[in-house]
Amino acid sequence: MSAMRVLLAVAATLGLGAAAIAADKPDPAADAKAFQDYFVKKFPKVAFDDFVNGPYSMNADMRRQWEEKEQFPPYEFALEAGKEMFAKPFKNGKTYADCFPNGGIGIRQNYPYFDDKEGKVITLELALNRCREANGEAPYSYVKDEMASLTAYMAYTSRGKRFDIKIPDDPRALDAFEKGKEYFYTRRGQLNFSCASCHVQSPGERIRAEILAPALGILNAMPIYRSEWSGMGTTSRRIVTCNSQTRAVPLEPQSDEYRNLEYYLSYVSNGLPVSGPGARP
């Protein structure tokens, strides 16, 4: 009888242990649902797909101005440049199309992805530079016009396609997602701001003359033409600028932290359409 009791106690302990492990395991799907529910509840009048339009989904005046601006979009020159660059062969005769599924057309919604061979997140910007290097070309700066033009063209060919970021059941992928989440919510810089301070707690509010965009769908519009920059900006440029605005020293573009952040932020926006390239004040 006492042996039975001992066995039952051991079984119960093992069961509890397994339950604790299950509770600790990251659950990206549950995180994404909670994330999306938060914004939908916070902004019940904003249509789900409209979150990709950032501040324009939050403010009627800005939206009217933007709609007029879209008649002659300021990112158009980058789009044309990107289309030319994308088609122009490298010195070895190959093109970007040779590096990507479907010739690189209509695939923006699948980036970033987790590369199980490397065990890391691969963003579209990183994949483009790796394509260049694999074909004997020098990589582009992650924060300058060439990269913005290329990604603008690739986003444009994917417009309307819904983000479909995959997180395989691989502890390294789950870890990358968790680390991206941690980065997103971690306060940094002398101003003690996290990404969430602006884009979760205060979307729709003004910060100086700007209206803050919601985090939901924020990457779907990338790359963007920013009037403040008088030019185009990549996702890398946007993150680097956010960091320095909080008086934090930015990390290197495409550092593991930024790649993980992009992975997290893209995954929780799954189901929203690609709207890039975008235009912002």
Partner: peptide, 12 residues
């Protein structure tokens, strides 16, 4: 301190 405190901000 943010190693733990970031969790306070997380949407759950």
């Amino acid at each position: 301190s943010e190693k733990q405190r970031w969790k306070d901000m997380e949407i759950r």
